[in-house]
């Protein structure tokens, strides 16, 4: 018998099969990464509270958005472009806490930094049912950005690192984690959303 070659399997159509699979996956999948603004809703109110904790006017930064997407900040019309700067000024406030226009301070225990005066700032956001979602997200984004910038500047000043650098460092060291907590305690993010109302029709 002569030497017989094992017949070679034709792999020419393999590419076609793989392409078919590839196209199937291309069609059925989405590429977009899910990103967004993460928020926490306040817990539901079972019954109207008897004594609503009083918040002084000077501690509240009021942001109103009406149905025409106009912004009213602390009683004055404003452009979204200026909101971040105004909010930052309010969050930082007066370092001595004496200015009657700026929020009061409260003695708070902060990790690493010990007891210190922390601003009692609250940002109150109220929107109309007719406000566009686009505007709402813009305002939310500016407010979050204001907090992030203030925290970044503080972290830079106190610890010589931005929040992002601290977060990277926190994976390895406990100290960085405490530093993040400290910054967050000094400038806690308090964005309060009022119960919806129909205003500004």
């Amino acid at each position: 018998m002569a030497r017989r070659n094992a017949p070679e399997i034709n792999a020419g159509s393999m590419a076609d099969i793989a392409f078919l699979l590839l196209i199937f996956f291309l069609v059925t999948t989405t590429m977009d990464v899910d990103t967004g603004l993460t928020r926490r809703l306040p817990p539901p109110i079972e019954e109207p509270l008897e004594d609503i904790p009083e918040v002084r006017q000077r501690n509240v930064f009021q942001v109103l958005v009406n149905a025409n997407d106009d912004l009213l900040v602390e009683g004055e019309p404003m452009d979204v472009g200026n909101l971040r700067e105004e909010a930052k000024n309010f969050i930082i406030g007066d370092p001595t806490f004496q200015d009657p226009e700026m929020p009061e301070g409260k003695l708070t225990k902060v990790p690493l930094l010990g007891e210190m005066m922390v601003s009692k700032q609250i940002i109150s956001l109220q929107n109309d049912r007719g406000t566009s979602y686009d505007m709402y997200i813009k305002v939310q984004n500016e407010l979050v950005a204001a907090y992030n910038e203030v925290r970044n500047e503080y972290a830079q000043r106190k610890f010589g690192k931005t929040m992002k650098q601290l977060e990277t460092a926190a994976e390895l060291s406990e100290k960085a984690e405490l530093q993040i907590d400290a910054v967050k305690d000094v400038y806690p993010q308090r964005i309060s959303e009022a119960e919806p109302k129909n205003a500004g029709e």
């Binding site: 993460t38 306040p42 929107n127 049912r129 939310q140």
Partner: peptide, 29 residues
């Protein structure tokens, strides 16, 4: 959708609160 009005979004948020689903995310690019 960015063209939506907040009314319906607020309603949904209130329902989520009632259901005690408090962790939410506004999906954006």
């Amino acid at each position: 959708d960015k063209e939506s009005e907040m009314g319906i979004v607020t309603d949904v948020k209130q329902e989520l609160r009632k259901a005690n689903a408090l962790k939410i995310n506004y999906s954006t690019y």
